[in-house]
Computed example of a mutant assay.
Amino acid sequence: MLELTEVPSVKMGLLIRRPPAEVFRAMVDPEFTTKVWYSKSSGEMTPGAKLVWEWEVYGASAQVTVLDVEKDSLVRFTWGNYAPDNPTTVEFRFIPLHDGTTTYFQITETGFTGTGDELVRAVADSTGGYTYMICALKALLEHDLVLNVVPDVFPAELRDK
């Protein structure tokens, strides 16, 4: 029998060859973020903001509460992506490298709840979603390419299979 000895969390990241200010802006300004992650936001990520993010192609949305924003360095928010009554906490860190010309964009998500199976599924889903998003962000910022990765993950023809 499998047993969890601690609640799993997400921690992942990727090098993006752009200064932290550019990567930060792309994640707080819906004009950019809608090209790589959600399709609609009720506003920018500012301290104390209560936002609604939508993934219109999936008919999904999430309630977001922005806790902290440190310009070009950190964004921390909660959202009820998996359990609306028990939101998780997500932290985006924008770590400057190579004299500030490059950013290591790190994402951490903690506070998952549920049974062992539910925890593993939520962490795996979040890790996969962040991987798609961060790769799309890298393509946008480094090569000016919009990959449409997130809307293409689950084509309508395959969703019920």
Rank of each mutant, 00 (worst) to 15 (best):
E22V: 07
A60S: 14
P96M: 05
T5R: 08
N81W: 05
V66F: 03
V146E: 11
T110C: 13
V69M: 01
L140E: 02
S61R: 11
G129W: 01
V120M: 15
A122K: 15
F94C: 02
T102G: 01
T88D: 06
T131R: 08
T65P: 01
E142H: 03
E142W: 07
V75K: 01
S61Y: 07
V52H: 07
P30S: 13
S42V: 11
G114I: 00
Y132M: 05
L145M: 14
D144T: 11
P20T: 06
T102D: 13
T46K: 12
V64G: 04
W79T: 05
T101S: 12
I95E: 09
Q106R: 14
L137I: 04
W55T: 05
T103M: 08
T46H: 04
L137Y: 01
T89A: 13
T34Y: 01
V52L: 12
K138Q: 09
P19A: 13
T65R: 10
F94K: 01
K71I: 12
V23H: 02
P96T: 13
Q63E: 14
T127F: 04
P8C: 11
Y132I: 06
E6V: 14
A136Q: 08
K35I: 11
V75I: 14
V28E: 06
E109C: 04
G100V: 11
I95L: 11
T34G: 01
V150M: 12
F112P: 00
A26P: 09
P30D: 08
V10Y: 02
